[in-house]
């Protein structure tokens, strides 16, 4: 192709690169830059690390920040210990050869994942509502009525309840990814295991699980990134104030309140940028740990 004019390469690349740079990369760096400024009556001016000093040094700000971060970590832990094992278990059952109706189960279990957070948040709010009484009367039917509490309204339970709602919504994603990984294991490998006497559970733990570890790694990092920039479910179910008493506040809702403002407080884009920078740092750290710490060390098998 040497000698032919190569301007078409530029034409092919330009639209994507321009939109991506202008709307994603440039604002990302601009946000990191804005975190170093403070606003004033005469316009913004450079203030170095002032916003970060406020965020981590001022007791009111730092209390909110650590509260949000702590809640976010708990939110993530619930996903890791509930969502991913359930997803793996469902995938393991679904990948069973000659299981009937498996396409039906797969599609049905995936339905919550396609619904918006607004629907999911409100639907569960109604179902768990003590006024409507679906949850209490169902527990009653099981003889467990004493266990019922207005979970979303209690500081101690609200965050865990929301995390479990989010797990309910997203369990389809680990299920699908693990299912795909399990299907890609060649039959010969499993048969070789069978000859060595590995069947059923033993085959799962000793052959399949090691082979799907890379997929579990991908799911973990997807969950991590998704959880640390989550916002919609909390906002839809509990509002921007992430009640009761900020017990469900996570970084996304904290960022929204800070930069966009809410009833009691004016928005502050510079403090908002500082929080966004902190979120960026957290997500970047997680992604780097995954890329260098986990992915490169994980053994991949080629069939």
């Amino acid at each position: 192709m040497a000698g032919r004019p190569r301007s078409h390469i530029v034409v092919f690349l330009a639209p994507a690169v321009i939109v991506y740079t202008a709307v994603m990369i440039w604002p990302l760096f601009n946000t990191l830059r804005l975190a170093l400024y403070v606003g004033g009556p005469e316009g913004r001016h450079f203030a170095g690390l002032e916003n970060f000093r406020t965020l981590f040094g001022d007791p009111r700000w730092s209390a909110s920040f650590w509260n949000a971060l702590g809640n976010n970590v708990w939110f993530f832990i619930i996903h890791m210990i509930v969502q991913n094992p359930i997803g793996i278990a469902l995938a393991a059952i679904l990948s069973h050869p000659r299981l009937r109706f498996s396409a039906f189960y797969r599609s049905a279990i995936f339905i919550p994942t396609i619904l918006s957070f607004v629907i999911v948040g409100f639907a569960w709010k109604l179902i768990l509502s003590p006024i409507w009484g679906i949850a209490p009367s169902m527990l009653d039917a099981l003889g467990l009525k004493a266990l019922f509490a207005p979970w979303l309204g209690k500081e101690d339970y609200a965050l865990t309840t929301l995390a479990l709602i989010s797990v309910w919504q997203f369990v389809g994603i680990p299920m699908m990814l693990i299912y795909a990984a399990l299907l890609s294991i060649p039959e010969e490998v499993l048969e070789a295991g069978e000859i060595d006497g590995l069947t059923g559970w033993a085959a799962f733990w000793k052959i399949k699980l090691p082979l799907i570890l890379p997929s579990i790694g991908i799911i973990s990092i997807l969950t991590f990134v998704g959880n640390f920039n989550a916002f919609d479910l909390i906002y839809a179910a509990q509002g921007a104030l992430a009640g009761p008493n900020f017990s469900t506040d996570i970084l996304g809702t904290f960022l929204y309140r800070t930069f966009f403002g809410f009833q009691l407080q004016l928005g502050d884009p510079h403090m908002g940028s500082a929080i966004a920078t902190a979120m960026f740092a957290i997500i970047l750290t997680g992604v780097c740990i995954y890329l260098w710490g986990i992915q490169t060390r994980m053994r991949r098998y080629q069939f």
Binding site: Y20, A22, V23, P27, T31, L34, G252, L255, F280
Partner: peptide, 23 residues
């Protein structure tokens, strides 16, 4: 260029919201 375009797979665009709003 491939790496540059792949950056956005892992970094959520929401982080840049403050500057996107200004833009």
């Amino acid at each position: 260029m491939g790496l540059y375009l792949a950056l956005g797979i892992m970094i959520p665009i929401r982080i840049g919201t403050v500057a996107i709003l200004e833009l």
